[in-house]
Design a protein around this nucleic acid. Structure first.
Lengths: 145, 145
DNA sequence: TCTGAAATTAAGACGTA
DNA sequence: TACGTCTTAATTTCAGA
């Protein structure tokens, strides 16, 4: 899909405030509300904008423990299978196969260190996973997801 | 702040659709639109809900290269300083200090491998950073951020 | 792309339990 | 304190130019 300059400006405004009215966005980018809506609908259809969401403070909801886990997978299993293993747990925020020593990197948010330990055990217990190596997050710098 | 069961349900709905109307959310959780609005406003004030945003497909906007970079920082510098270094680059999606061997882990999105190399060089050139070790993302599994 | 009208929604005031 | 209802202003949505 073709994204022009105005589309990008619209995306920037909507990332900044996902509930901004089309009229407000239009005023900022120099279009009418309906023109903005049509562009947004088009980007939603094309998958450029996946959707809208509320940004929540994990700590406030009790997700106080955060960690990154490197995964080594068995020779007989594919990294894709390992990702599937990770995705089964609701504590897994993201998972990706990577270059380098480990095969995959998993981002986990748990309600406690104990909760994290449980997830780690379950992931490690899967036959597709040979070894794990985890690093607990001490403090957050940026989070621009 | 006290979050009750209904608040959590509201958060779930708004995470699923950040532009859902208060009436729609209310119908789902058994409240009137104004009651939902009051609760959402309260959660916004309390910082439980940080805001609303459009979820964008990075690939569609040209951010095709993704990587994780481990950082080792100089003895004279604090991990917090290292995070600040990372945060200066718009390509840095997130940064956190971690336990384990490395001092920090940085999540980067760049427009190309070349673009990523440039960021990596700049971060590595900072006096607070002693060493970096990066892993390029090969494929994404989940991304529930 | 804009305009304009109809339907929907947001936002706030008011009364109640 | 928290809820629902009601009212008004703003917004969305879709038609047509």
């Amino acid at each position: 899909m073709r994204i022009d300059d105005i589309d990008e400006q619209i995306v920037v405004r909507l990332r900044d405030d996902g509930r901004a009215s089309f009229a407000t966005v239009g005023a900022a980018v120099g279009l009418s509300a309906s023109a903005v809506k049509r562009r947004v609908d088009r980007m939603l259809d094309a998958g450029v904008i996946t959707g809208f969401t509320a940004v929540v403070d994990p700590e406030a909801l009790g997700w106080t423990t955060e960690a990154y886990v490197e995964l080594w997978c068995a020779p007989s299993s594919t990294p894709a299978q390992v990702l599937a293993v990770a995705a089964r747990h609701p504590q897994v925020v993201s998972a990706a196969t990577i270059s380098g020593e480990a095969d995959a990197l998993v981002h986990v948010r748990a309600t406690s260190v104990h909760d994290f330990e449980r997830v780690l055990e379950r992931i490690g217990a899967d036959p597709a996973v040979v070894r794990t190596k985890s690093a607990i997050v001490l403090s957050r710098g940026v989070l621009r997801t």
